[in-house]
Design a protein around this nucleic acid. Sequence first.
DNA 1: CTGGATCCTAGGCGATACTG
DNA 2: CAGTATCGCCTAGGATCCAG
Lengths: 140, 140
Amino acid sequence: MSPGHLPLVESCKPAKAVMSRVGDKWSMLIVIALRDGPLRFNEIKRAAGAISQRMLTLTLRSLERDGLVSRKVTPTTPPRVDYELTTLGHSLREPVEALGRWAFEHQTSIDAAQAAFDARAGIEPITGLADGGAVKGRAA
Amino acid sequence: MSPGHLPLVESCKPAKAVMSRVGDKWSMLIVIALRDGPLRFNEIKRAAGAISQRMLTLTLRSLERDGLVSRKVTPTTPPRVDYELTTLGHSLREPVEALGRWAFEHQTSIDAAQAAFDARAGIEPITGLADGGAVKGRAA
DNA sequence: CTGGATCCTAGGCGATACTG
DNA sequence: CAGTATCGCCTAGGATCCAG
C-alpha cells in the first residue's frame, strides 16, 4: 500500500485514524457489544461494565459520526434509544476480531517476553557500574 | 471467544492490551517501518517523520518489552543500534495490515458519514438556540 | 549516534450534578 | 431513561538539555 520510499506517515493517515479508534478505550468494546443486534443506552452501559455515562455518550456519538453505529430514537416517556451496528460497523468487526484472535494466540509469548525483559532490566544495571539496582522505582 | 453473558470486559483483557498498542500514536508506524528489515535509531526516526526522540525511545523500549522488536547494540564509536522485528512482530503485521486495508477500502464511506453527520449537526442547532455553528474542526 | 532526565501542556477520561 | 455540563485528575507526549 505504501510505495516504500515516501515518508510513510502521510501514506497511511486514514489507517492511523482507524487504528486510533480501534485503540481507544471503549469503541471496540461497544462494537463487540453490539455484534448480536441493537441495544439501548443502558444495556450497552451494563455490557461494557465500568464505562462512565459521559464516555459512553461521547464514544457512541463518535462512532455514529464515523458511520459505524446508527442511533434510533423512540420518543416515548421515558425515551428509548437503540444503537445498532451499521453495515460498515459490522464490516469493521472482521479485521478487529482477527486482531483479537492474534492477541489471544500470542498472549503467552508476550507475557514471556515481558517477564524476560523485566528480569534483564533488573539484572543488568547500566553497563557495569555498581548500582543499587532498584527495579525502576515508581517514578515516571 | 466470549460466552456472551459475562461482563465481556474481562473476557478480552489481552485483546484490549494489544488494541491499545495498535492504537497508540507510534507503535504500528514503527512496526511497518521495520517490515523490510532492521533499521538504526535515526533511520526509524527519519522514516516516522515527526516523532520526538523521547517517544521513539519509549515506544521502541515498550515494543522490545513486548517481544515485538529486538535491539542489537554494536559498541563502536559512535555506537550503532539496530532494531528489527522479531517473528512475533512480523506475525502481528498480518492482522494490523488487514486493519489498514480495511481503512483504505472504507475511507470514503467514513468521510461521507462524517460529512453527513456534521451537516446534520449544523442544521439542528441545540434545540432552537441560534448558534454560530462552528464545525468543530477535526484535525489529527 | 543513541538515549537518558526534566519540564510542561493538551486533552482523555472519570465523578458528579442537573435537565427533559 | 437518555443526555448534557462542569470540574479536576492524571497521563501521553512534545521540547530541551545533558551524557556516554
